[in-house]
């Protein structure tokens, strides 16, 4: 069993109004040094299979459903999890 962490973020070229609002709020809190905030999604998947298959599956599901390639990028980390 593999534990997969998927991070989906808006592309650099896409404005993130939510991140901008949070950054503004941090500035108001006194954190002048925080120049930029980008908000994304974090997902955890548990996948059964060989390590090669798992990687192929992760790519496929990221492209088909977990991210929208028009506006988002994704990256992932695969960890082998200890059988319970």
């Amino acid at each position: 069993m593999y534990k997969v962490k998927v991070f989906v973020t808006l592309k650099e070229s896409v404005l993130d109004p939510q991140g901008k609002a949070v950054q503004q709020s941090l500035t108001n809190l006194g954190y002048q040094g925080v120049q930029d905030v980008r908000i994304g999604k974090y997902m955890e998947l548990s996948i059964d299979g060989s390590s090669q298959d798992v990687e192929a599956t992760v790519k496929e599901v990221c492209e088909k459903l977990l991210s929208n390639p028009v506006i988002e990028d994704y990256r992932y980390e695969i960890e082998e999890s200890v059988q319970q």
Partner: peptide
């Protein structure tokens, strides 16, 4: 329709949230 690819592009959150 956008998600299905029948139309091009995507939707973002409204500018004013």
């Amino acid at each position: 329709l956008l998600e299905s690819g029948l139309l091009p592009g995507a939707m973002l959150r409204n500018k004013n949230l």
